[in-house]
Design a protein around this nucleic acid. Structure first.
Length: 417
DNA sequence: GACGCGTGGAT
DNA sequence: TATCCAAGCGT
């Protein structure tokens, strides 16, 4: 039954039901937020720079872009990417019309690249629905097409869904991102559940189990505490609290508006929450990489498949070193298997250690000379010979960006000699 | 429900 | 330096 908390959640200072303390929790958090919250986030302001009043609507497009960028990514990292994106693709129409290549260029360095491609798809879907609904349709009754008589807002209200379900149906948008969008843009009462909220709530109730194993209950709890009168402000306040006060390592409980209600604080060791599962050991692999040059000074790159790691980005070809295999042999074998070319492996260009979320790689990069075979995209979307100066026009993952830097240094040194 | 999926900031 | 972890989603 909604509106009632599992008795096991009740911590030392939460003796009755949550229903009785939620008004106080809301008031305390919002009062704290007015003084200490992050109020300058650009996509949460009106065009004139004012904060929106309760119920006032924001343009959903900047919010959509920001919320997808913010998935598993900190605010200060997102900000410059969002600024650059909005300058390049200032509208949903511009995004939908953009080439995927340009979308990935704007996302380069942010990570989780499927987000960019799915956001691109989502823009196309939103616009396709809109275009379809605008087509004259003799079978559609007028009453089925409301909105045409509504007063025009600062954005096209017909273009953007209001319901959580419609947003969540878009690629790359799950419940939390969809809820963030509708609560931010429309001030609708939908609960969110990101890392900040999980941590704050886990401490509030001193949850003995990892949030990931209690997702339904954490969603329910986020719904319970949400202030339905000021959902936009409340959700933002909850995240700000987690980001600035209820931090992972050493929370500043002395300044927390919820200290008096926090079961983890009452238990004496708030940093013990949220309880975590034991971390998985990440595999370690050595990758042989070939920077293949032809006689015209061009270098060979390929575009990765959309599925899997770094999908859609470009790279220098290579692959995993096998047991007992010399790295030069790895490079020759991989370029034969994946590109059907023969190369002579030359000097080592650079060695790069790089950690992903789920594996650690050591890239051993060698300059190579192309010998024979027209490169084939046997394990990639496409392959291309480009001049080194043209590498800046392709989206590369972070580790490959370091290879490019090393290559340009090498060429500059060779040219100067 | 577990796992794959990037990168950089903070400590 | 090593580790944690971030405005999560799709499969």
């Amino acid at each position: 039954m909604p509106g009632r908390v599992d008795p096991r959640w009740t911590g030392a200072t939460i003796r009755e039901s949550f229903d009785e303390v939620t008004p106080e929790l809301r008031q305390q958090l919002l009062a704290w937020w007015e003084l200490h919250g992050r109020h300058g986030i650009p996509w949460k302001l009106l065009p004139d720079g004012r904060r929106p009043e309760p119920g006032e609507v924001l343009d959903p497009y900047p919010v959509l872009v920001a919320e997808v960028m913010l998935q598993q990514t900190q605010l200060q990292v997102v900000l410059p990417y969002w600024q650059r994106w909005m300058a390049a693709l200032p509208s949903l129409e511009a995004l939908a019309a953009a080439a995927e290549h340009d979308v990935l260029m704007l996302w380069q360095g942010l990570g989780y690249y499927s987000r960019a491609r799915r956001l691109h798809q989502a823009a196309g879907q939103l616009l396709a629905v809109h275009t379809e609904s605008r087509k004259p349709n003799p079978n559609r009754r007028l009453s089925q097409n409301p909105g045409l008589s509504e007063a025009p807002g600062p954005y096209d209200p017909e273009l953007w869904p209001r319901s959580l379900e419609a947003w969540q149906a878009l690629p790359g948008l799950g419940r939390s991102t969809a809820a963030s969008i509708v609560s931010s843009a429309f001030d609708q009462p939908e609960a969110i559940l990101d890392g900040n909220v999980k941590r704050v709530l886990a401490r509030l109730i001193a949850s003995p189990r990892p949030p990931a194993r209690q997702l339904a209950r954490f969603w329910q709890l986020s719904e319970l505490v949400l202030d339905p009168r000021r959902p936009r402000a409340f959700n933002q306040a909850l995240m700000d609290l987690g980001a600035s006060v209820c931090t992972p390592r050493s929370p500043s409980c002395g300044t927390c508006p919820w200290q008096g209600h926090c079961a983890a604080y009452a238990a004496g060791d708030p940093a013990r929450f949220p309880v975590k599962d034991a971390p998985r050991t990440v595999p370690y692999q050595v990758i042989g990489v070939g920077v293949v040059l032809d006689g015209a000074g061009r270098v060979l790159i390929d575009q990765r498949l959309n599925e899997g790691l770094l999908g859609g980005l470009w790279e220098f070809p290579g692959g995993k070193q096998e047991e007992g295999e010399a790295i030069a042999a790895t490079i020759r074998r991989e370029l034969d298997e994946e590109l059907a070319i023969a190369v002579a492996v030359g000097e080592e260009l650079v060695v790069i250690e790089h950690a992903y979320s789920h594996k650690r790689l050591r890239f051993v990069v060698h300059l190579c000379t192309w010998l024979s075979g027209e490169p084939q995209p046997l394990a990639s979307q496409q392959v291309r010979w480009v001049l080194p100066v043209e590498l800046a026009d392709y989206p590369f993952p972070a580790a490959n960006a370091r290879i490019i830097a090393a290559l340009l240094e090498h060429l500059a040194a060779a040219g100067a000699a």
